[in-house]
Write a protein that binds this DNA or RNA. Structure first.
Length: 855
RNA sequence: GGGGGAGUAGCCCAAUGGCAGAGGCAGAGGACUUAAAAUCCUCCCAGUACGGGUUCGAGUCCCGUCUCCCCUACCA
């Protein structure tokens, strides 16, 4: 073994080993010492404003107690390669990392063990940082941010004040998901099938006074501005669906008894097909609709009450999922279809209640057109309601008076103007997007900078104000007990001294005891990275102007809607307030694929830990200890499947450079693929070959083939990196090394140095080591990307396939720069025996092929 | 049901409409070695899920079908 760190320059030249452990430790220490990846921004000494900027960002992690697994570094490796590449291309590169560290796990751990969440968080952050640094990522660690740091959440609160003063934050009594086990409300999107997303605890709907953010005010802009973003189509589609803009009309229906006597209460429905109003043969109200009681006639009271009770027990999701057949009950009352004149028997239509109509969407009431809507048809058929025809086969309207013969596009505006003239309704745009439930009953989150006024009796007057910007942050009080209080108040209510505030005038205020959801900190962290130590402002406007927008944002598809929609919303608010210079934060977005893992099941179906399994022959696996056959599956990496791969183990066995190279070589960055331990030696061998190549005696003149191979590699790696095609870039480097291996001589110094630059983004530690060995001058990370010479890309002669009628019939050798006629002539000679018929056409693609089309 | 994506060699993956193969894994043989490992060399392997169409030429473009993955789902 070569002693680590000492290649022994005085010793005779012998085969040395690739001691990745020593190499990686040496260069990581070097980078730290030299601050190699310190990124300077506007206003900092040494900043070069003439260079173009590149902001490449990872979705920052929640530092969990389990540490990093090999899935995290897939995206981080991609951004690091690109960051390093852009530095070689002369960009000022902003490439930061931080921690999204508020959240439930640390708080639950605190409840169970009494360990303060701050302590748990600090420990986990240290673990994550150590693991990331062990991979040699070129983050500027001087810019590290932590959402739980008061110097950070001071500004999260400051942004809340901006939202508040713009009328975008308000309190409302809303039915919310309450999770008893977690002791908190959850947002709709944090509840799946009536269970909490975290921990799968049962949740119930419950009306509570909560903070809301008026994201719906931005619905149209959030939708329209997706257009200009370089994002995956799938993510854009998900956001569009989440916003769920639907254009239609609200139509007001008067109510009447069976005999047609007016009942005096109107209700309004929302419909996307106002043009089919002539086909509306009944109406359905949601069981929770406020008018139900009034409209229910005495003989239907029992049935309606029973139905309402049954519906109340089911969540919206249960209603949707467990309900295959439509159910509902008649109220006994009728509505008047405004399309028909008084006296027309079609005017009187029954009003039902049914749980397929949701109170939380539209108006909680619908007009039913069984001829046009599948659900309405199903309901009508189930209960024997009439199905008047209003649509022809081709979708044009019929039996619809002034709309007959019109298409939907033509008829909708006509009907809307009819309704508006008659004051029966109005055009209306509805959204599926609801306002954002922004408060949580938790300790480990940002406190709201809000004070509630109390009167002399200590009662809430309903007045409230935000804490002045200059008095921020409102820091979290120390607590011993992190559980909610007996009265159901959030844990912060336990800090009585903290809750009670007496102002200069002696007026008493009560602090808001809710805290913000975990999304808050991640809504703007990309802004703080630009100016992380500013204690006068959240960021300096000049600095913001230079760096924004984020040029490349890489993260998991699981954040397609929530994080990315919330952050876009805040960003637009900040834009409107003149605080940021771009309407969108993230210009280009990439979802890295999932790193899955093999999992193994024995014959009884029990999971077998991945490290207890061995392969017996191709495709056959057995449990090492017992020899029992096991079956291999591909699945998400998870503790429960016992198939988690720990990056620390991989680094120990193969080194960080191999790990990085493998992550990048697995396939396209967007593709999911299982972690295949069998493939690691392959990329490791490549690095070994590079090491041995540099171990050869240097030469002063390179063989022509090696020079050609190098120039091809420079071109290909550069082009592939522009496209984030990391896997094929690595293949190009492998080609070069294979060509060198064949040549059996060493590299020239110039070739060695150029190759080090190509290798650096992928395997930076080895590249630095070889750069030093090759007498590289200056910092490798900042050395310009080598240029390739076109002249070296072309071979002097090329072999061109010659086809006849599309079939390969021969090959022609021609000079690489031969003109069309020369190529055609050579091709003719090559396939002369196949050219007996009339030649109808000759296709010559220089450098590619020749095709003769014969009769 | 709706939306997004993918099907190429035993496996992972490449291929501006132009010879299906860049690279890696696995497999076979050989060289080196006292031997093994490592290393090096050589070799093996398909017509691109299926059916049509456009084209001189289709893995690639168009239409239809099948399979798989992800997201979403009574939103009126």
């Amino acid at each position: 073994m070569t002693p680590p760190g000492d290649p022994g320059p005085e010793q005779p030249r012998t085969m040395s080993t690739y001691d990745f452990t020593a190499i990686e430790a040496r260069w990581q220490a070097f980078w730290m010492e030299q601050q190699s990846f310190r990124c300077l921004g506007p206003g900092e000494e040494g900043f070069d404003p003439s260079k173009p900027k590149y902001y490449v960002l990872d979705m920052f992690p929640y530092p969990s107690g389990a540490g990093l697994h090999v899935g995290h570094p897939k995206g981080y490796t991609a951004t690091d390669i690109t960051a390093r590449y852009k530095r070689h291309r002369g960009f000022n590169v902003l490439h930061p990392m931080g921690w999204d560290a508020f959240g439930l796990p640390a708080e639950q751990y605190a409840i169970q063990t009494g360990t303060h969440p701050a302590k748990t968080t600090a420990k986990n952050v240290d673990q994550f940082r150590r693991q990331l640094q062990a991979l040699g990522f070129s983050y500027d660690w001087a810019r590290e941010v932590n959402t739980t740091d008061p110097n950070y959440y001071r500004w999260t609160q400051w942004i809340f004040n901006r939202l508040f003063e713009r009328g975008l934050a308000y309190q409302a009594e809303v039915p919310v998901w309450w999770c008893e086990a977690l002791g908190t409300v959850l947002a709709n999107e944090e509840v799946i099938d009536g269970m909490s997303e975290r921990g799968s605890h049962p949740c119930v709907r419950k009306p509570l006074r909560q903070w809301m953010l008026r994201i719906t005010e931005y619905a149209d802009r959030l939708l329209d501005d997706l257009e200009g973003l370089d994002w995956p189509e799938s993510v854009k589609a998900m956001q569009r669906e989440w916003i769920g803009r639907s254009v239609g009309a609200e139509i007001s229906f008067a109510t009447a008894s069976v005999s047609g006597e007016a009942l005096g209460s109107d209700f309004t429905v929302f419909t996307t097909r106002p043009d089919t109003l002539f086909g509306a043969s009944f109406c359905v109200l949601s069981p929770e609709h406020p008018l139900v009681a009034e409209l229910t006639t005495p003989e239907h009271v029992d049935a309606v009450a029973a139905y309402q009770e049954q519906a109340a027990r089911k969540s919206e999701l249960e209603r949707a999922e467990l309900q295959k057949e439509k159910t509902g009950v008649f109220t006994g009352s009728y509505a008047l279809n405004p399309a028909f004149a008084e006296g027309d028997p079609r005017r009187l239509i029954p009003v039902w209640i049914a749980d397929y109509v949701l109170m939380s969407y539209g108006t909680g009431a619908i007009m039913c057109v069984p001829d046009g809507d599948e659900r309405d048809r199903e309901f009508a058929e189930a209960y024997g309601l009439s199905v008047p025809q209003v649509l022809e086969e081709d979708g044009t309207l019929c039996n619809s008076d002034f709309l007959n013969g019109l298409s939907q596009e033509q008829a909708v505006p006509k009907m809307v103007s009819f309704l508006e003239e008659q004051k029966l309704g109005t055009g209306k745009v509805n959204y599926r997007l609801r306002d954002w439930l922004f408060s949580r009953q938790r300790y480990w989150g940002e406190p709201f900078p809000v004070l509630h006024e109390l009167n002399a009796a200590g009662e809430d007057t309903g007045e409230r104000k935000t804490v002045a910007d200059g008095d921020l942050p409102v820091t979290l009080p120390e607590l011993e007990d992190f559980t909610p209080t007996a009265s159901g108040d959030p844990p912060l209510a336990r800090a009585e001294d903290w809750v009670k505030v007496v102002d200069a005038d002696g007026k008493v205020w009560r602090r808001e005891t809710n805290s913000m959801p975990q999304w808050a900190g991640s809504c703007w962290y990309y802004l703080r990275f630009m100016d992380p130590h500013n204690d006068q402002a959240a960021w300096d406007p000049e600095i913001e102007k230079y760096w924004m927008p984020v040029d490349l944002y890489v993260g998991g598809a699981e954040h397609a809607v929530l994080h990315l929609l919330y952050a876009r919303f805040w960003h637009k608010v900040l834009f409107d307030a003149g605080l940021v210079s771009t309407p969108e934060p993230f210009q280009s977005l990439v979802n890295q694929g999932m790193v899955q893992s093999y999992a193994f099941k024995d014959e009884r179906g029990a999971l077998v830990p991945i490290d207890e399994v061995e392969e017996t022959q191709e495709g056959e696996y057995q449990r090492q200890a017992t020899g029992d056959k096991v079956e291999r599956l591909v699945a998400k990496m998870s503790k429960s499947l016992k198939n988690v791969i720990n990056p620390d183990d991989v680094i120990q066995e193969y080194g960080a450079d191999t790990m990085r190279l493998y992550e990048a070589f697995m396939g396209p960055v967007t593709a999911s693929a299982p972690w295949n331990p069998r493939d690691l030696p392959g990329v490791h061998r490549f690095l070994q070959r590079v090491w041995r190549l540099f171990d050869r005696e240097a030469v002063t003149e390179a063989p022509e083939e090696v020079t050609r191979a190098l120039h091809r590699a420079i071109k290909k790696v550069g082009e592939d990196l522009e496209q984030m095609n990391y896997n094929t870039a690595i293949a190009a480097m492998m080609e070069f090394v294979n060509a060198c291996t064949k040549s059996e001589v060493g590299l020239t110094t110039a070739h060695a140095q150029a190759f080090c630059i190509l290798l650096e983004p992928f395997a930076p530690h080895l590249a630095e080591e070889l750069w030093a060995q090759s007498q590289g001058v200056g910092a490798l990370a900042d050395t310009p990307w080598p240029a390739y010479d076109e002249a070296w890309l072309k071979a002097s002669t090329v072999e061109i396939p010659v086809q006849v009628n599309g079939k390969l019939r021969g090959k022609a050798q021609v000079a690489a720069d031969a003109d069309r006629d020369t190529i055609e002539g050579a091709a003719r000679d090559a396939v002369a025996e196949h050219l007996e018929g009339t030649i109808r056409k000759v296709v010559v693609v220089p450098g590619r092929l020749v095709n003769f089309v014969v009769a």
